[in-house]
């Protein structure tokens, strides 16, 4: 049996500017940097503030809530993922940015644009945690 290649390694994905974000995921938190100089809260995390280019940040935990902006059903992916699966483009509720995430707990027929979703974080594997999205049920 040949083992599947594994590309999902911290060395492949984690840039120094975003290390705090990945560390956050490993402890179950979805973090975004706020520039300590100009106060800009931004996403995705980068080494320099896109507004003022300073590099000192405080990291804030986002709610993880979001709204489905668009979606696709993917029929091919990296060997680590079973296909097909649903991929959502999700506007973060705080309005700071968008993410793509695998959607769990829903079928293509049940998705609609604008649907409220919540970000969940998987258990770390090979030192990496990824996030995914689930429908946010109103209780």
């Amino acid at each position: 049996m040949t083992s599947k290649p594994n590309y999902l390694k911290p060395t492949n994905l984690e840039s120094p500017g975003a290390r705090k974000f990945w560390e956050g995921l490993r402890t179950g938190k979805f973090l975004a940097p706020r520039c300590e100089d100009c106060g800009e809260l931004f996403f995705p995390p980068r080494a320099y503030c896109p507004e003022c280019l300073k590099d000192s940040f405080a990291w804030e935990e986002l709610s993880g809530k979001g709204f489905l902006y668009s979606w696709t059903e993917l029929f091919f992916s990296l060997p680590e993922f079973d296909t097909p699966f649903l991929l959502g483009l999700v506007d973060l509720a705080e309005g700071v940015g968008r993410i793509t995430a695998k959607i769990s707990g829903e079928t293509a027929g049940g998705l609609y644009i604008g649907m409220p979703l919540i970000i969940r974080i998987s258990n770390p594997r090979d030192g990496m945690a990824l996030y995914y999205a689930e429908p946010l049920c109103s209780e």
């Binding site: 975003a18 668009s70 696709t72 091919f76 990296l78 483009l89 995430a101 996030y131």
Partner: peptide
């Protein structure tokens, strides 16, 4: 391809750029 911004584009989508055009087409 999604590894260009892996914090926002988690590496579920791979092999070229069809996933991005698919999201655009759906919207």
């Amino acid at each position: 391809w999604s590894m260009i911004e892996p914090t926002a584009l988690q590496p579920y989508a791979a092999y070229g750029i069809i996933w991005a055009y698919a999201l655009s087409a759906r919207r």
